[in-house]
């Protein structure tokens, strides 16, 4: 009976931890340390638009029941992995209401851009 309780405890712990575990964050997205447990990236949509420019849209969910204020920044990279210098790469504010989805969108500044990095960090109140 004691052994049964122990296994039940282990099972419950596994379920709880499993519920809290974050889904895989895409490799192009860098979440600031504090955000990794709070923000769940649900979809990263990347497409080459008719304009020839790379368009990115990230959909994520705030796991907390309170608002999270964040800043994000896109770094745009060319085919050789070099960062493309542009004024379009700057910190922008975004917020996520408690337990709600939010999106972050970006458009590459040039057609030469083939990849990107998206940095998201918590913004102090």
């Amino acid at each position: 009976m004691g052994t049964q309780h122990k296994w039940l405890g282990v099972l419950l712990a596994a379920l709880v931890l499993g519920g809290c575990a974050s889904t895989d964050t895409p490799e192009q997205v860098y979440l600031d340390g504090g955000l990794t447990g709070w923000i769940e990236v649900q979809d990263l949509h990347v497409r080459r638009a008719d304009s020839g420019l790379l368009e990115v849209q990230l959909t994520a969910r705030n796991r907390l029941d309170s608002v999270i204020l964040m800043n994000y920044r896109f770094d745009w990279l060319d085919g050789e992995g070099r960062q493309v210098q542009t004024g379009m790469s700057r910190q922008m504010p975004v917020s996520a209401a408690g337990l709600r989805h939010f999106t972050i969108s970006g458009v590459a500044p040039k057609e030469e851009v083939t990849d990107f990095r998206l940095y998201i960090e918590e913004r102090p109140r």
Binding site: A49, G87, R90, S105, P109
Partner: peptide
């Protein structure tokens, strides 16, 4: 100014009007 400019450029580039 950077914020407003960036939002405007993003919107213009994704609108398709500049293609």
């Amino acid at each position: 100014f950077e914020h407003a400019a960036m939002k405007a450029v993003e919107s213009m580039l994704t609108s398709g009007q500049l293609d």
